[in-house]
C-alpha cells in the first residue's frame, strides 16, 4: 500500500474544523478561514504520496473528531477541473 501511496478521506459530518490536520499535512491540505481542511490537489479524497503515508496516519490518530481516514488506495485518476496548488 505504502508503495503506491494512499488517499485521505475526510468525514465532513464529523469534522469540526479544529485545524490540526492542515497543520500536520501542509503538503496535502490547506486550511480555510474556519479551520476546515482544503485539498491542495482539488480532489474530494486528496492523494497521499508514499513518503507522507506515515505522517497521514499520525494525523489520522490525532484528529480530535476522528474525522480523518487514510484509505489504502491512491485516488483513481486526475481530477477533471480542480486547480492545483504548488506544494508548500
Amino acid at each position: 500500500m505504502s508503495r503506491r501511496g494512499a488517499r485521505l478521506h475526510i468525514d465532513w459530518t464529523a469534522c469540526e474544523g479544529r485545524g490540526l490536520c492542515s497543520e500536520m499535512l501542509t503538503e496535502i491540505l490547506a486550511i480555510d478561514d474556519w479551520g476546515y481542511p482544503l485539498a491542495r490537489d482539488g480532489r474530494p479524497e486528496p492523494a497521499v504520496p508514499r513518503e507522507l503515508v506515515a505522517h497521514a496516519r499520525r494525523a489520522e490518530r490525532l484528529c480530535p473528531r476522528l474525522a480523518l481516514r487514510v484509505l489504502p488506495e491512491p485516488p483513481p485518476t486526475r481530477p477533471q477541473g480542480g486547480s492545483q496548488l504548488p506544494p508548500s
Binding site: 490547506a30 480555510d32 478561514d33 482544503l38 485539498a39 480532489r43 481530477p79 477541473g81 486547480s83 496548488l85
Partner: peptide, 20 residues
C-alpha cells in the same frame, strides 16, 4: 472570515458533489 478579496482563489472548499 477574511474578506473575499484576500482569499486564495485557487482554494475552493470541497463539497460532497466532488471537486470544483
Amino acid at each position: 472570515p477574511a474578506p473575499p478579496g484576500n482569499r486564495d482563489p485557487r482554494l475552493t472548499p470541497l463539497t460532497i458533489s466532488g471537486p470544483p
